[in-house]
Design a protein around this nucleic acid. Structure first.
Lengths: 206, 206
DNA sequence: GTCTATAAGAGGATAGAC
DNA sequence: GTCTATCCTCTTATAGAC
């Protein structure tokens, strides 16, 4: 309850710099190709010093994921303050946000296959808590949007949730960017449109 | 033009076994986590023998990709024989096929970030040729489907193409499977529905 | 807590006998 | 072309001085 000491503040700043580097490298190369040496080099400290802050590469990734989840939850909270917005618009807004983060090279995407990483993440209470909370928040919007007839009510809510999550690491975004035919905002709107409206033409009938 | 000798046939069979193992491991772990030792072990030969057939790990992956593209092109050709089917149904059919392959652990998905792999693939004429041919075949159906008002004509055809490609490595499929709430066929139809019809409810008006 | 130096091991690729 | 044995680099992680 006492305010943090100077040393603690320095520690915080240092660790924040580390997590930022991890976040960027995770977004750029992914977990497997990211090296601890690379992180140390980007932060500008020795690798051994890194291990004084985080016990393993998996913990580094976990810290970056927690921070990204916190940022996402903050964005969700910000959107929730707009009571007038329809639930489906809230869902679109947070999806836009996630896709912009990916385009900015700020969205780490972890492989779901790597078992050691997965085990480490699931062992982290802070990580699991945030995943659950985000799922709850988005789940509320999804349920409301389905009740209001804005989201297809025949779809399992979990399918809707996972489909939205997947937009944050959609490879289509990177491919479209590499063609250099579209601005970032155009990419966001194109992918968002295919996600919510589908590829099929929307005709006159149901 | 003479028919292959016995030795050549043996070689073919051996290389086919290698590519099968690569294909499976690539689908299971991805390129980065797949090891050449693992491939050798699965085939049941020494690692050095592998290198008599393929010069590098990248070439192994390339061979697997070429084979998968060939299988896809064969499936496309099979579908083309049904002249009565609407183009959009052809696109759905080939997408279903790709998703089933993923569910069966037969769809290798390569990271787009890895530059050495990318360079090796683009240097392979057989690979590039097949990618181009598949793009042409699917592009025809996309254009026809848009002209017929079955696919949203406001979407750039390349966006439609990439969106369909992405279904072959859609992480949503794996997540849904891990929940064990749905059969493989249910997963295929759910993801196909979100892809073509979108998350939003399809109401009465355009 | 930061550093230099190094252990320990995985993994891609090759040498050389057969 | 297949094998065993080995090389060599990269990478995770730690030891130990300051």
């Amino acid at each position: 309850m006492s305010r943090p000491s100077f040393r603690e503040q320095v520690l915080r700043v240092r660790e924040d710099a580390i997590v930022s580097a991890v976040n960027r490298l995770l977004a750029e190369k992914g977990f497997d190709l990211m090296t601890v040496d690379g992180v140390a080099a980007e932060v500008g400290i020795a690798k051994a010093s890194l291990y004084k802050h985080f016990a393993s590469k998996e913990e580094l990734a976990g810290a970056a994921m927690v921070r990204v989840l916190d940022k996402t939850l903050a964005e969700v909270e910000r959107l929730r303050s707009d009571k007038a917005a329809a639930p489906v618009e809230q869902l679109k807004a947070v999806t836009r946000w996630a896709m912009r983060e990916q385009l900015a090279g700020q969205m780490p995407s972890l492989p779901s296959e790597n078992s050691t990483l997965r085990a480490a993440l699931l062992a982290s209470k802070t990580y699991v808590d945030r995943v659950m909370e985000l799922g709850d928040r988005l789940g509320e919007w999804i349920t409301m949007a389905q009740a209001a007839g804005q989201i297809d009510g025949s779809l399992p809510p979990e399918l809707v949730l996972y489909t939205l999550y997947a937009r944050a690491c959609d490879p289509v975004i990177g491919v479209l960017k590499s063609t250099a035919n579209y601005s970032d905002e155009e990419i966001v709107e194109l992918v968002l449109k295919t996600c919510f409206d589908g590829l099929a033409a929307r005709g006159e009938r149901a």
